[in-house]
Write a protein that binds this DNA or RNA. Structure first.
Lengths: 231, 231
DNA sequence: CTGACTTTGTGCGCGCGTTCACAAGCGCGT
DNA sequence: ACGCGCTTGTGAACGCGCGCACAAAGTCAG
């Protein structure tokens, strides 16, 4: 970039006029809204106000309205949002409507738990392949799926597949590289390691112990405050 | 709080002059730095520059320096940071040095995986109690611990305990309430539900399917872009 | 002992995200 | 048919966090 030569770049924005432009923070909340909407739908509600939905989702109502406004105006003023319609729209935005292939690598403790986790399937993101490097585990039946060897990776991934890494830390980068080589452009990493991926590949991570350590910090802080502060 | 009665609170800030004031964003990265430091220590490194550590941790070096500066200046200019000393300091800041009791409720698929997850124990946050509401599971041995009934909750929690909820969604709020009633002030929720806790209780959540749905969004976006954008 | 190099610690500007507050819009009762 | 009240959608201000770029500080060679 050469900012000095672009003093009036407001007119020639690179790729802004693309319709969507949904902020990342909003995307991160869409799944929460979706779950809240499913709760309301199961409860028999057909419409819901931003205030009520925000209450269930645990967020500010203004934030919720702004979030929803980013994917078009689907609310009716004076009434609220149509629950079923909103579920449809949010699901579409998240790409949950058309089947998306999910490949899980590593069937240790965590991998098994993930394979059996109902939260994926109920949102149109069922895991449909289990891989492992350990040949002793190949052939095993887990959650209705047969574990296959990781060498068969190319046979199970298709364009648009999402890769999930649940291997030990030291194997994660290697598995990651193989996923990328097989054409996977979205990877979710559960291994406690920083992975590097080439540009164009989306990498997200879930560190199970990270949140626990953050809580430990706050607990520690509280204890220190309780002892030192009440002068 | 009563903000209306405090028009000049700039002078009488509630609890600001307390030394620490570590930003939340920094706290969230401390565990990552700690893991990177352990990697370097195992590798035999005794000192490390902010640049090198930032590389391993996958962050900007300036951000890392600013983060570390928040917990005091433990670096030597011209040299870098002493790895062992920094591990000590970060661990202390996170409260990992003195044993912190962790109680896990719900030993389903996920609970078992968490109980056996090595990432906790290796950081001084070993789970030391397993509870479940299902009496058929009580007495079971998992990862060296015996599953106890949730009614014994008060016997296993102590001041400063951290509670981990790995139950089905519909049981989570009830378990959460019981944890709070037992005196737990830090709770980590793995159940896909929004929990409400009274003020003073720290609640964090890990949603396993959330990140996957975010990836689904990006994958969906990429697919739409690949089809529609290349005009 | 001095000078030059290396690395930390931080002041500053920028952009994103959150929140308040209000105008625009729609349905419903009368 | 018409106005009243409710709810959405959004403009603007605020605050946080990030990254650059530089000054302070300490080490090492000679």
């Amino acid at each position: 970039m050469d900012p000095s030569s672009l003093s009036e770049d407001a007119l020639a924005t690179p790729a802004p006029r693309r319709q969507a432009m949904v902020p990342e923070a909003t995307v991160a909340r869409l799944p929460i809204y979706l779950r809240a909407l499913h709760v309301l739908a199961d409860d028999g509600q057909t419409t819901v106000s931003s205030e009520a939905l925000a209450e269930v989702a645990g967020v500010n109502s203004a934030k919720l309205r702004k979030d929803l406004s980013h994917l078009g105006s689907y609310g009716t003023r004076g009434v609220g949002y149509d629950v079923a319609h909103l579920i449809e729209q949010v699901s579409a935005e998240l790409g949950l409507l058309r089947h998306c292939s999910v490949v899980l690598v590593g069937v240790g403790n965590l991998g098994r738990a993930l394979a059996g986790y109902g939260g994926f399937a109920s949102r149109g993101l069922a895991i449909d392949a289990l891989l492992d490097a350990d040949r002793n585990r190949v052939g095993e039946q887990i959650a209705g799926l047969t574990v296959r060897h990781i060498d068969e990776l190319c046979d199970v991934v298709s364009k648009g597949s999402i890769g999930v890494i649940a291997t030990p830390a030291q194997a994660a980068q290697q598995v990651c590289d193989r996923l990328v080589a097989a054409g996977v452009t979205s990877i979710l990493n559960f291994a406690p390691t920083v992975l590097s991926v080439p540009p164009g590949v989306d990498l997200r991570k879930v560190d199970l112990s990270l949140e626990l350590q953050i809580l430990s910090f706050h607990e520690h802080r509280k204890a220190a405050l309780a002892q030192g502060a009440p002068v």
